[in-house]
Design a protein around this nucleic acid. Structure first.
Lengths: 129, 129
DNA sequence: ATAATATCGATAATGATTACTATTATTAAT
DNA sequence: ATTAATAATAGTAATCATTATCGATATTAT
């Protein structure tokens, strides 16, 4: 929150995102936030999510085709996209640093970072089977 | 091409994609293909790319926010998104099988596959520095 | 050659996201 | 606390990638 202005709407966006463990889309946040702030605009949600993501305060999760999801947990973790419930779930595991160096041994460019998404079945769907 | 019908347009889409080493978007293919087939429709490109991807004949590459890219090389390789030229480049390296098993040791669901994208600077941009 | 079926081109529709604008709120400086 | 400068808001229009629709045309199995 370094040097970022505060507004009721901006604070509410971050607050709502921090309070949930799922990874809502802008539209899902919109539905939740209009309970508190009835006339909040969807554009305001998008604007603030973009700003917070640019500042590194939240994460923007891009999962193919569908709307972006957002995550207030910026500490190291990975995500799994469950093919049953179609949700993004957290996988807490240390960063796989060797991926970058491994790629570098096969490539003459500069590998700076990577993004990994796992696919399969989440804990919930698996245990409720 | 098991059991798939052929048409001038469909063959041309696959042909064009196979002939290039970049990873064009539907629109980029559209621009190239209308040289050969002046009245080809953008919808036809999209329709055939979707079909070919569903059949596993080509790959759909989803890179955040922007239009999907397509790749006729389905053999194992990874991609790097170059922050200088903003292009997707191939990284030829064997599949990192241990990623799935590593994730499984940290997670109680079922990890079936993963997708990795690297970020950095491609060979071209790096050597032309 | 014919009938059944898939594909085509053209374009409208959709869904996610961004841009625009007049109004309102927040901040920094008096 | 007032004020001036600046940023954020709501509401909505616009954009961009992609998909759906539909009547006309092409492809395939018979």
């Amino acid at each position: 929150m370094a040097g970022i202005r505060h507004s009721r709407q901006r604070d509410a966006v971050l607050d709502e995102l921090c309070s949930r463990s799922d990874h809502p889309t802008a539209d899902e946040l919109f539905l939740a936030l209009r309970e508190r702030i009835p006339n909040i605009s969807l554009a305001t949600i998008y604007r603030n999510l973009a700003l917070l993501a640019d500042e590194g305060i939240i994460l923007r999760l891009n999962c193919d085709g569908v709307a972006d999801h957002f995550d207030a947990t910026t500490s190291q973790h990975y995500h799994l996209f469950c093919k049953k419930c179609k949700k993004l779930c957290d996988i807490e595991m240390p960063e796989i640093d060797m991926l970058n160096s491994l790629a570098n041994t096969h490539y003459d460019g500069i590998i700076e970072s990577h993004s990994v998404t796992f696919f399969g079945i989440c804990e919930n769907c698996h245990s409720n089977k």
